[in-house]
């Protein structure tokens, strides 16, 4: 009798409620409350001594629309989009290949993929800085090969920031893509060819739609950090490249304008919510049975 082994129903319910309550409490205390505090801060006025003061105002949001800041946001968005595109172009074929190779090697390769996470990303960013420096190994090699006469100015450019972001964020693109590629049944691609679609048509009409949840999940995990990783811009871009993350950091730590920093931060949260929503929609379109 299986029932004997289980605790009586009332106990089980109690345990379940306790566990559920705990996770809800956790979410409430560490996610919802901080976000509400940020939202509240964004709606207040700044105060030189206490940081925040009443009355409520939309002033900070209005200032976000200032052409000066708007410019920074759009530049940062363009940089983040370039990073995402770079990760997608590198990650898509990589994830596909990873899902196709001999099963024995796969765990090892996935392990190698996440191995860099064991080193702090700040340290890795400094390593890239060394690599790109005027007297760094890359310029050294190019000079030695006689390909260039004078060291290239690689550091403190947009390109350097994008390179750093792509390097740091690539695994976050590959892992969700790898997951969808692993679930992909190869017969579906054969069926498409069999029905008269060439390689390109099969890519567009079958492969992309079936891997869309992975593409969106990867975009979600790359685009938002690419807007916010201020230290990458600091280290590799010098003062020349600003991310939304730099603005938020500056407002909180340097300018001491909490309401404005909070408003910029809410902007990022809203962008994330939008992407999450798009991801859910795409997943639902592929899922069985459930009405949209």
């Amino acid at each position: 009798m299986a029932e004997v082994a289980l605790p009586p129903p009332r106990h089980r319910n109690l345990l379940r409620s306790a566990l559920l309550g705990l996770s809800w409490g956790w979410l409430l205390a560490l996610v919802l409350v901080p976000n509400l505090l940020v939202l509240a801060a964004s709606l207040l006025n700044r105060d030189p001594t206490h940081f925040l003061q009443l009355p409520l105002t939309l002033d900070s949001y209005r200032r976000l629309l200032d052409p000066l800041y708007l410019r920074v946001f759009l530049d940062s968005l363009a940089l983040a989009l370039a990073t995402t595109l770079g990760c997608l172009l590198l990650g898509y074929p990589f994830a596909w290949a990873l899902s196709r190779i001999d099963g024995r090697w796969r765990p090892l390769l996935v392990f190698l993929l996440i191995l860099p996470f064991w080193t702090n990303s700040l340290v890795r960013t400094y390593a890239i800085k060394q690599l790109l420096a005027a007297n760094g190994p890359l310029n050294g090699a190019l000079l030695a090969l006689g390909l260039i006469d004078a060291p290239l100015e690689l550091l403190y450019t947009q390109g350097a920031v994008i390179l750093g972001l792509v390097y740091l964020l690539l695994p976050f693109m590959i892992l969700p893509l790898y997951a969808v590629f692993e679930d992909l049944r190869p017969e579906l691609l054969l069926a498409s060819r069999d029905l008269g679609a060439g390689r390109l048509a099969t890519f567009v009409h079958v492969l992309i739609p079936l891997t869309l949840p992975g593409i969106l999940a990867g975009t979600l995990l790359v685009l938002l950090p690419a807007l916010g990783m201020f230290y990458v811009a600091d280290i590799l871009g010098g003062a020349r490249v600003l991310l939304v993350g730099n603005i938020i950091k500056n407002q909180f730590l340097d300018a001491r304008d909490w309401p404005f920093g909070a408003a910029a931060s809410i902007l990022l949260t809203a962008a994330m919510a939008l992407l999450l929503f798009a991801h859910r929609l795409a997943r639902r379109r592929l899922r069985d049975g459930e009405a949209p």
Partner: peptide, 27 residues
């Protein structure tokens, strides 16, 4: 394969999950 005038019914059907029945047949 796409230019051979023959078609295949696969063992596990291989229907496209992102298309409805009409979309599958119209593909």
């Amino acid at each position: 394969p796409e230019r051979r005038p023959l078609n295949t019914v696969f063992q596990q059907y291989a229907l496209f999950p992102h298309l409805d029945v009409f979309g599958n047949v119209a593909y």
